[in-house]
Write a protein that binds this DNA or RNA. Structure first.
Lengths: 122, 122
DNA sequence: CCGTATCCTAGCTGATACTG
DNA sequence: CAGTATCAGCTAGGATACGG
């Protein structure tokens, strides 16, 4: 999960961000939990953020729980049920992530065309 | 640089985002170029986003150039000079990244305390 | 100064099996 | 169902050295 604290004392908030909220799937997971704005079960979350692996989703959710961004509730039933929910702290990211989602929706086509015509790797 | 197009046809804009704008240093680099709002040389950029490696910065800048987010100008001098600048398209990310930077500045202490008391890996 | 090449480590994925 | 565990393989990232 990285969360490396070396160089966390620098002046760039974005460097702090990528050190604390690290991982390829971090932003999609937080965004999905924020949009849901309610409890959501592990399986439903994984399907919503496909194609994330079970292992990776578990790891990220544990990290967010540690950071106080996500609540985790285990129901000792059979079969087990585990529900996740964004915390109040996590919800403070909503305007930012909404903005990012809007940007992506607006520029998705242009960006994809650019990367295809300039032929990046596939 | 990843830029994987598999599953780019799903409904989550954030999954699109992490597939197009991928890499640990992507956001810090774009933010720095946006804040600078002027040409900036490779070396100055690297120092501003420390501790990014030269290799990683080069790779990311090439990807952003391909996406049309960054302009690159080479001056065939000796020693060489290469200047980078955010494009108009790239500048459309400014409100979003400003918001993210503000969020990080506001919650940095709380997040770092949480990760220390709950003792994550180092 | 800027970029590339090399080698190495860390992170992510896929598949599968197994538990409470 | 929601994990944990394993093994394998791939990709991303870091450290270092070197060349134009």
């Amino acid at each position: 999960m990285a969360t490396i604290f070396t160089h966390l004392d620098d002046k760039c908030p974005m460097v702090d961000f990528v050190n604390l909220v690290s991982g390829k799937w971090a932003i999609p997971i937080l965004y999905r939990l924020i949009v849901t704005d309610d409890v959501i079960r592990f399986g439903a979350l994984q399907r919503a953020i496909a194609p994330i692996t079970q292992k990776e989703l578990t790891k990220q959710l544990r990290a967010f729980e540690t950071l106080g961004l996500v609540d985790r509730t285990v129901y000792p039933e059979m079969p087990p049920r585990v529900e996740y929910q964004i915390t109040e702290l996590g919800k403070t990211l909503k305007p930012t992530l909404d903005s990012l989602a809007d940007w992506m929706r607006e520029h998705r086509e242009q960006l994809m065309q650019a990367s295809e015509t300039n032929s990046i790797n596939l």
